[in-house]
Design a binder for these strands. Structure first.
Lengths: 221, 221
DNA sequence: GCTTGTGAAGACCTTCACAGCA
DNA sequence: TGCTGTGAAGGTCTTCACAAGC
């Protein structure tokens, strides 16, 4: 159901989603290399670090341009900058969190988001006892204020940390506000609208996808 | 059914990994349906709930057997039982946690694992100040005891909740103990051995795979 | 009628292999 | 020499479409 064609702005699309899923991993490795003082890297070397074939890396990059030099490889700093720009990771993103229960608080206190440019700048909860309280430096707001706050603060990403039974409703509310990217921690199969990206964080599901290999005695990788 | 090489026990393997990734989702929906009193379900209905085509569901199931009845669909209870058995989810699994810092404690207090048969029965940490303390009903043990405890308690799954810089080392240690399934919360690209399944929980990476679509103005789903 | 199970077809993604260039 | 970028080939997964059967 993917519509291949041109995109409103001149950006190349029709890039396979699998490619988009890999680029952040390239970015991460390149960042580490840059920090380690590495200047040039070949697709061979990158591939070894990521358990990916060199051809795959070259092909992935070729969707966006020609970043390498024959015989030398890629300039780490340059490629990193290019990839960050392509992925929209050369800027900050404002994030809104829905649900400030135990999980929501853990998310608010997780120090890994901000350094990567993801700033949780608003928190919402349906529980009137929580609304108005300050949690993790944020004033918890009512769900009624969702639409207003999302627009006022230019929030473009939503994180859902509410009980499963409320998750789909919250996701619907977020989409109604024009949110196009949602990270859900609820163990459900979310129904999304076209043009909205939803990713799930679901440790149990992750475990459940491994037990097959444990019980089947399979020798597969 | 394509048999691509036999497995030590009679189990069919050569099942695409994508299929294995989807089955737990089918299981989840079927569980909900069973709880809701639904008796029969068609691939059409299942597909709507999961945003998957009916043909895909039928094909996925056909790797393992013929569970449906023409004209009627699948018996919810029966299919659920079959799928659980196939995936090794009709039993309990013992899990060991490495790292009892903030994240590790959050994992220990997460109530979602046990009901699905994943029991965290041992916790380890490299920090001598933590070893011997009781956290989440578990006596934190030294990394030196890893091998012994894994074997004694029949632990077959490891969860890694240590700082990134130690994650690969911990993963290596777990693999050395014979652990074949690892859930890592560290934001790294883990290097695994053949025959070992590793899944990552990485919210930042998940966010980073969505921003492309936010910034490109793409109309893709 | 309705729905499964499945070969065949098609779409998609990965890998190959080599021309081109530093 | 070494490595990229890329058409072409190959492989894998998805979808189609229909015979079979309730």
């Amino acid at each position: 159901m993917v519509i291949r064609g041109s995109t409103p702005m001149g950006m190349p699309s029709g890039v396979p989603e699998v490619v988009i899923m890999r680029l952040p991993q390239y970015i991460r490795i390149l960042s580490e290399m840059l920090a380690g003082g590495v200047e040039m890297v070949s697709s061979q070397q990158l591939g070894e670090m990521l358990q990916v074939t060199p051809a795959q890396i070259r092909k992935d990059l070729s969707y966006f341009g020609r970043f390498g030099k024959q015989g030398r490889g890629y300039n780490v700093k340059g490629l990193l900058a290019e990839l960050k720009e392509i992925m929209g990771l050369d800027r900050s993103w404002n994030v809104g969190l829905v649900g400030v229960g135990r999980l929501g608080r853990a998310i608010l206190s997780y120090p890994g988001f901000a350094p990567e440019g993801f700033h949780i700048i608003a928190a919402f909860d349906a529980d009137p006892n929580l609304v108005g309280r300050v949690i993790g430096n944020l004033n918890v707001q009512s769900m009624n204020e969702l639409d207003t706050v999302v627009k006022e603060l230019d929030i473009s990403i939503g994180i859902v940390a509410v009980p499963s039974r409320h998750a789909q409703g919250v996701i619907d509310r977020l989409m109604d506000c024009g949110i196009k990217a949602i990270l859900s921690y609820a163990p459900i199969a979310p129904q999304g609208q076209a043009g909205v990206k939803i990713r799930n964080i679901d440790p149990v599901l992750s475990l459940q996808t491994m037990t097959f290999y444990l019980s089947s005695g399979s020798a597969e990788d």
